[in-house]
Design a protein around this nucleic acid. Structure first.
Lengths: 304, 304
DNA sequence: GGGCAGCGATACCGCCCCGGTATCGGCCCA
DNA sequence: TGGGCCGATACCGGGGCGGTATCGCTGCCC
């Protein structure tokens, strides 16, 4: 199976329309029809049902859609990481680290400084993105390593190393009555009158229905809170860079947030290994030597 | 980048010899040379150093070797799983479960029975393989789901669900002096005179240097132990089907073995989800409802 | 109900690219 | 210095890819 065939099939499977898929691919419709037929013939599998007037996926077709997307991501990753590895010897962007905008406020600079101080360190580009986008970037090679936050981000499919854990606090407008309290519970803050929790976009970029303002990043969120239009529960480290018109109160029963460093399990480059080592070192220095940073490697036993 | 180019490059990168790589690929050498040159030109990256008389990988080349192998595995997986999905509607092998030969003696039949009893269950093929092979099979689509045993198997890159945990025992020839002991420690069994631990093949199929007989599977191992040529530490569940000429003694400080069910994180087919559900159910019934089987899903939070 | 529009399939054609054979050029070794 | 090994180059033939033109089918609408 060639990647060209996969790209073609995925375009048709997503559009469910040969004409639009061909346009998206920048080719004419007849070669696309023929390519899909060839793919089906070579696989010996019907991928699409063409009851004229409607194209639908068969069971096998939806399997190929999911698996093919993963495969194309892997091919893209190979391309991008190879290019980056070549540039790293002469130019700059040796590694790309991705994290959510606004998160890990003080950990990230410490981590970067610690790695930069290592011998043989390469330049690290930092990529900031919205929630839920990191996994995709890591999978298709636009990033090499990510800072993820359990339990909000899924870490499945990646190697991870824990860096630190923290409690969460609720962010409120300065002067809000609840800011006088020493601590709160989730039940106190989930349905604050006039201060709904915001809505974040899903993986497809659309917003779920419901109350609360739509936000894309943390800056938007904080501004809305300062305006008295929303509230939010965030890891306590966000207090370090908070604006003066906001206040925080610990939330006792909010889930603990664990920051982990994550990377694709097969790509154990020298540069990446160094960054991970620097990260765990920096984290132990932040949180104290006895917490954070699990050291147990991922080595296979010599046994069964 | 086309999969043909990737296959060609990987062949050359592994052989480090254009002639042999071409032979392995079933083509002549000149088209192969040209294809690699085109690939390098299109990427704008030198992948190989040809100091006549020796071909070596550049830094970028070794990145492409690793990433390309992962990408080709993903493409192969897409191919195989699509074919299997199509056959499942009419024919037999709906899911392929892989586990190490000899392991999970009583859990596996319970799991299969529990799943077969579910409505809409598809046929499950069971594939037995040697240690360390399961991850590869899962990655390239020859299997859909695996039973892995931490800490021996690496679970990185997969979604997992814990099924059960067990202590380990040492397997000795019946009549060995130590069999009279109620329990032992690792220090007692690592260097038994005349009964060395066996050597298992590495990922590349070769055996590490050192003492001890070479074994490929559990049957070979048990026969060697019965002959008084080896000893081994295995999970206690292996006692269920042990031959009469072998004896076991618990090893108190051997690492606890956790059996997990693992699958590629992106392939959440209906059939697979059913099998995982049946597996966790069967495991809770085996180990008691309060242990085993973590229920916490991998869902992304709506928050960041 | 017949014309029409939309959509995928088919037919045919030209060109590029892949793979093959023959050969060259450099290097090590005898 | 000649021979052998190995990768690169030159050149050729065929298959496949992509393009245009057209067909066949099916709802829809006047």
């Amino acid at each position: 199976m060639e990647t060209r065939e996969l790209r073609y099939f995925i375009a048709v499977a997503e559009e469910l329309h040969f004409g639009r898929a061909a346009e998206r691919l920048g080719i004419a419709q007849p070669p696309l029809s023929r390519a899909i037929q060839q793919l089906e013939r070579r696989l010996g599998v019907a991928l699409l049902d063409r009851n004229s007037r409607a194209v639908t996926l068969t069971e096998a077709g939806s399997v190929l859609l999911r698996e093919g997307q993963a495969a194309l991501d892997a091919v893209d990753a190979a391309d991008r990481r190879t290019r980056r590895a070549a540039l790293a010897t002469t130019g700059h962007p040796g590694l790309v680290l991705v994290t959510k905008a606004g998160a890990s406020g003080d950990l990230l600079p410490k981590l970067l400084d610690a790695y930069a101080a290592e011998p043989g360190a390469v330049a690290v580009d930092v990529l900031l993105c919205g929630p839920g986008e990191q996994e995709r970037l890591l999978r298709d090679g636009r990033a090499d390593v990510a800072l993820l936050h359990r339990p909000f981000d899924s870490t499945t499919g990646f190697d991870t190393e824990e860096l630190c854990t923290e409690e969460q606090v609720v962010i409120l407008p300065a002067g809000h009555p609840l800011t006088s309290r020493a601590h709160l519970r989730m039940a106190d803050v989930t349905a604050l009158p006039g201060l709904p929790m915001p809505r974040w976009p899903g993986p497809d970029g659309t917003y779920p229905d419901g109350p609360g303002p739509q936000v894309r990043d943390q800056a938007q969120l904080l501004q809305l809170i300062a305006l008295g239009r929303a509230s939010a529960v965030l890891p306590e480290s966000c207090r370090a860079h908070l604006r003066g018109d906001l206040a925080t109160v610990p939330v006792l029963d909010a889930p603990t947030v664990t920051t982990v460093i994550a990377w694709p399990p097969h790509s154990r480059s020298r540069a990446l290994a160094g960054l991970v080592r620097a990260a765990t070192g920096a984290a132990t220095r932040v949180t104290g030597p006895s917490s954070g940073a699990t050291v147990l490697g991922t080595g296979r036993g010599t046994d069964r």
